[in-house]
């Protein structure tokens, strides 16, 4: 199971991400446990499958307006669903990939699966411990969910 130090890795990378990429820091709040059947999703979700030392998934989920605003900060004039999905997948990939600095290369990650709306196929493993990390960027609320068990 993920320990407290390992969970903090995700908090730290989420904090750094928005400062570096969008030049505006996010407020990352204290993680809390969610149950396997709890549905914490916004409009767009990027899911990274995890294997190796851990098994499960890491996903980033955010409202459409936040993704559209993020696109705007990057000078993008087109805020289509396709582009919002691209951003949400890239954020999930970056946050999971950055975690390999501390968790090592045996924290193996998949390419992102990008989902619009409520994902039917996103069920957290009953045996995994799942944490939601609330992220507030500007006026928008998003979340990073880390649902992992030992590999």
């Amino acid at each position: 199971m993920l320990n407290e130090t390992q969970l903090k890795v995700f908090v730290d990378h989420a904090t750094h991400y928005f400062s570096a990429f969008a030049q505006e820091p996010a407020i990352v709040r204290v993680p809390y446990l969610i149950s396997h059947d709890e549905s914490l999703v916004y409009d767009y979700t990027g899911v990274i499958g995890v294997s190796g030392a851990f098994r499960g998934c890491v996903y980033f989920t955010a409202p459409a307006r936040m993704m559209q605003y993020l696109l705007m900060t990057q000078g993008e004039t087109e805020h289509s669903q396709e582009h919002c999905l691209d951003v949400v997948g890239e954020i999930a990939n970056t946050l999971a990939g950055n975690a390999r600095r501390e968790l090592g290369s045996d924290f193996m990650i998949s390419v992102p699966i990008r989902i619009a709306g409520k994902p039917e196929q996103l069920t957290l493993a009953r045996s995994a411990r799942s944490y939601a990390i609330p992220i507030q960027w500007r006026v928008y609320s998003a979340a990073l969910v880390v649902s992992l068990e030992d590999g």
Partner: peptide, 22 residues
């Protein structure tokens, strides 16, 4: 985004000359 040391080493071994983290 892959920030672990062994990925960077493998990239350099294959001939990459620099590494910038996302």
């Amino acid at each position: 985004a892959l920030a672990d040391r062994s990925t960077a080493i493998e990239a350099i071994r294959r001939g990459a000359r620099g590494f910038l983290y996302k």
